[in-house]
């Protein structure tokens, strides 16, 4: 009867009230994610350091993402080269293609696309791995062995993401600029010297730093959301202790990470400009 009453009350709530509730829940979850990240971050420095596990994670998040980053970076640069050339040629300023490609990549596309690609490749795997560890009681087993699961599982991932993301972003930028050169100079005939000299003169240290700052923020977002979703798989009302729970956690991890990356990108850009 009480349950029925609750359900009726739930149905009677206005859409505005429901939206408000959802917003509050979302903010609450963001707060929990922030606390979760802080715990994991500070435990990186607790002794003895987990260096082998951090290196293992750098290999997983960083090294294994190199191919995807190179591939997407190259094609993004090549597309930018095409689009940029045909837009600039209308104003007779195709000589600025180097500036257009390099600035778009370094300021925006490099950090954002690299973060989204790593979310798809490593973030989903992190959420699924931790989720499976949760439902198969491996995280409980760590607790009973007096091993802090956050320090053992999450901290190395945070450290590895903070190291890997800026490096992968840099790689994406370099490959992208080279991709722009391939279409702009090799295919469409812009002199290579002009392409690279424009790129060199227009890109300032402020732009490169801004790109790196973004990539660090994105690293925090991706690793926190993905690990959090996996770690608390069992608390979700749907699917909880099962394969469905893990699949939902993985989906949520990827979707939430991508959305928040784009929102954070807007906020960060407005601060950095």
């Amino acid at each position: 009867m009480v349950e029925l009453g609750k359900m009726e009350l739930e149905n009677k709530k206005s859409p505005v009230a429901k939206l408000g509730e959802l917003t509050l829940l979302y903010i609450q979850e963001l707060g929990s994610i922030a606390i979760f990240f802080s715990k994991g971050f500070f435990l990186i420095f607790s002794l003895p350091l987990h260096l082998p596990r951090i290196l293992q994670q750098i290999q997983f998040i960083g090294t294994k993402s190199i191919f995807v980053i190179c591939l997407t970076g190259a094609f993004t640069g090549m597309v930018l080269g095409f689009q940029g050339y045909y837009s600039l040629v209308m104003f007779g300023s195709e000589g600025f293609l180097g500036s257009a490609v390099s600035l778009s990549l370094i300021r925006e596309l490099g950090p954002v696309l690299a973060a989204i690609m790593v979310t798809g490749r490593a973030g989903s795997a992190m959420a699924a791995e931790i989720g499976i560890m949760r439902i198969s009681e491996q995280i409980d087993a760590l607790k009973t062995m007096n091993i802090n699961p956050i320090r053992f599982l999450i901290s190395p991932k945070i450290a590895a993401a903070l190291i890997s993301f800026p490096l992968l972003t840099a790689l994406f930028d370099v490959i992208g600029i080279f991709g722009g050169y391939l279409t702009g100079s090799i295919l469409l005939g812009i002199t290579p010297e002009i392409y690279f000299s424009r790129a060199e003169t227009s890109v300032l240290m402020k732009d490169i730093n801004g790109g790196f700052i973004k990539s660090i923020f994105f690293a925090i977002i991706v690793v926190s959301i993905c690990c959090y979703q996996g770690y608390y798989t069992h608390t979700r009302s749907e699917g909880g202790f099962g394969a469905k729970g893990v699949s939902l956690s993985t989906t949520n991890a990827v979707v939430h990470s991508c959305v928040i990356i784009l929102v954070a990108d807007y906020v960060l850009t407005s601060f950095l400009m």
Partner: peptide, 9 residues
């Protein structure tokens, strides 16, 4: 543990 809870990795 009943499920053994061995670390599969």
């Amino acid at each position: 543990f009943q499920s053994t809870a061995l670390f599969d990795s």
